[in-house]
């Protein structure tokens, strides 16, 4: 199965250093949590992996290839980065139909992922009227459209109601158990503790720690305690 290999990514915005040699590998079979203070470079790393941001140096490889080299990229890597990246007047279903057509996928895939994400009814309404939680579900539906072996999700729990959080946790765990590489950035340590098998802790655009969740819990009692200890003194926003 496909891995995500992030190797020596560097990126600066003027004087601010966003990425300073970010390096880690995401392996299939378990959820990998991606944590760190605001400004640690998590979102920039995810955006760089799928080619939205251009790094100054370094590479990001998905299953052996750069995202931009993939002919039907959504069949190789599904991404939920910006739940607001949609046409507000288009219905959720039409949004997915457009995406499916662009990837050479049959239209029925749109209805399948709508059902999978609980949007079967809301799918006919204009996406501009969706709540954040519904947009997150639509974003997950889009990420799953191509049945990709690699998934990237940036703060997928934002805006979900408690039932939605439980659903998302189970879904991501199942997707990883099917042998996919799943990278989830989040600030919710308790969610990750229950869900993730591995955690990458980022700070100042670098990896501070890259370890199994069980190892961290064994050493620090909880993932939250481990996070606070590891990121102590790492100011996020500079």
């Amino acid at each position: 199965m496909a891995t995500i290999e992030v190797n020596g990514l560097r990126k600066r915005y003027g004087a601010a250093v966003a990425l300073d040699g970010m390096t880690f590998t995401v392996r299939p079979g378990h959820v990998t949590g991606f944590v760190g203070p605001n400004g640690a470079g998590k979102s920039t790393t995810l955006r760089t992996i799928i080619g939205l941001d251009r790094p100054d140096a370094g590479t990001a490889i998905i299953g052996g290839r750069r995202y931009a080299e993939l002919a039907h990229p959504m069949r190789h890597c599904g991404a939920l980065l910006d739940p607001h990246a949609l046409h507000p007047a288009r219905s959720g279903r039409n949004h997915l139909l457009w995406l499916a057509a662009s990837q050479g996928l049959p239209a029925r895939r749109a209805d399948e992922v709508l059902g999978l994400t609980g949007l079967a009814d809301a799918g006919r309404r204009a996406a501009g009227g969706y709540s954040l939680g519904m947009r997150q579900r639509l974003g997950v539906a889009a990420a799953l459209l191509g049945d990709p072996p690699v998934l990237l999700l940036d703060e997928p729990f934002n805006g979900l109601d408690p039932a939605g959080i439980v659903w998302m946790r189970g879904l991501l765990r199942d997707l990883a158990a099917e042998g996919r590489s799943v990278l989830v950035s989040s600030h919710l340590m308790s969610e990750l503790q229950d869900m993730a098998g591995h955690v990458v802790v980022a700070g100042h655009g670098r990896v501070i720690a890259d370890a199994g969740v069980d190892d961290l819990i064994g050493e620090y009692a909880s993932l939250e305690a481990a996070y606070l200890e590891l990121t102590a003194g790492v100011g996020g926003i500079r």
Binding site: I50, L52, A68, P73, M74, A79, A85, L86, H87, A142
Partner: peptide
């Protein structure tokens, strides 16, 4: 304006 460009570039990264 709508943010759709990010969806477009995920779909067509070239």
């Amino acid at each position: 304006g709508t943010g759709l460009i990010r969806a477009t570039l995920i779909v067509v990264p070239r």
